[in-house]
């Protein structure tokens, strides 16, 4: 059957979109917190991007969850049971973050406090989100008499989990500063651009090193994954090449100015870098969703439901596409919005 493979591909595309969009979103609220007291427009730029976009980003998360429930009900069952505590924490943090961000927009007096909360939660959420990955790789879940359970003792003492969290964090900071550098440039704000370009230059190599260490820290139970990953070596090399091109674009000359950087090029290549690595990782992970208990084939939904969902997904995205284009034109392109003081 080809259908389960298509379904897992759709899920993985959604995971990829959310990890990029989420990193930029959560990272932006972190930078907005860091630069509140500075003279540059850096904090202002981050908030200008965040205000209209966080709701959309939140929707992508729900889309992902609903897609898992629909395409792989058995996986929803396992994740729901195993990840009750960490996911609940994520939910609470998202609730606090979103509401505080909206409140900060409405109440000027407590701005600082509110921004600090949304900034801090912006760091915690991605770290917790990514910790779901090592759980699927084996060794953390035991099937007891009451069903699958997460072994918290192993989970909280595993270096692998903490390396994943660190990787999530550095990726978040790298992607968001890179994106905000581009956004500042689009807004013609040289001061903010310099700040975010500097951050991107700093976090790019750090992220790469952390990624390699994370791979090395895999637990013995995940050795199956490591050997699969080594089969996709070429892909990871390609991913690093993309990184080198994107990273170097931060020094390319622009309109006659030397070493000014072309952040748009950098953003595109770094997204390619993450895309290639994400799909190589995803392919190595097959056929398991949760090793060794749950495979893509076992967890797959009813075939009629699959086709209805796929049609709805395609039709829905097609209908909403003009909405996204209008949105992009209004908030990511329109000079009147970008250059407002």
């Amino acid at each position: 059957m080809i259908e389960p493979k298509i379904a897992i591909l759709v899920i993985w595309i959604l995971v990829f979109i959310y990890s990029i969009a989420g990193s930029i979103d959560f990272g932006a609220s972190f930078w907005a917190m860091i630069y509140t007291k500075q003279d540059t427009q850096a904090s202002e730029i981050a908030n200008r991007f965040l205000s209209p976009t966080w709701e959309i980003n939140n929707t992508i998360l729900v889309l992902l969850v609903v897609a898992v429930v629909g395409f792989f009900p058995e996986a929803a069952f396992t994740f729901g049971t195993v990840l009750l505590v960490p996911v609940s924490l994520i939910l609470l943090l998202i609730l606090l973050r979103s509401s505080f961000m909206v409140f900060a927009y409405s109440v000027q007096g407590y701005n600082r406090t509110l921004r600090t909360v949304s900034g801090l939660t912006g760091v915690l959420v991605p770290a917790l989100l990514i910790s779901a990955l090592p759980v699927t790789e084996g060794g953390f879940v035991h099937v007891g008499p009451r069903g699958p359970e997460l072994d918290f003792g192993i989970f909280f003492t595993s270096p692998s989990v903490y390396m994943y969290m660190l990787f999530g964090l550095t990726s978040e900071l790298f992607l968001s500063s890179l994106f905000l550098a581009d956004y500042s440039k689009e807004s013609k704000d040289q001061g903010a651009y310099k700040v975010y370009r500097r951050n991107a230059i700093l976090f790019g190599p750090i992220t790469l090193v952390v990624a390699v260490v994370t791979l090395l820290s895999f637990r013995p139970e995940a050795s199956w994954l490591l050997s699969n990953i080594s089969r996709y070596q070429k892909w990871f090399v390609l991913s690093i090449i993309m990184f080198v091109i994107g990273y170097s674009a931060l020094w390319w000359s622009d309109r006659g100015r030397k070493a000014e950087g072309k952040p748009r090029i950098a953003v595109i290549f770094v997204i390619l870098q993450y895309g290639i690595a994400t799909f190589a990782y995803g392919a190595s992970h097959l056929p398991y969703i949760v090793y060794p208990y749950l495979t893509v084939g076992d967890a797959f939904t009813n075939i009629n439901t699959f086709y209805s969902l796929l049609n709805v997904l395609g039709l829905g995205l097609a209908i909403l596409l003009p909405g996204f284009i209008v949105f992009w034109a209004l908030f990511l392109k329109d000079k009147r919005y970008l250059q407002r003081k």
């Binding site: 889309l63 609903v66 629909g70 395409f71 829905g316 908030f331």
Partner: peptide, 28 residues
Amino acid sequence: MKIVGQVIAVPFKIEIFAFFLEALALSI
């Protein structure tokens, strides 16, 4: 949700698009 996923996942899925529409339009 194990049964929901197999039988009644469609409204949940469409609901996401309604949610998208609302979020986009409200931001605008």
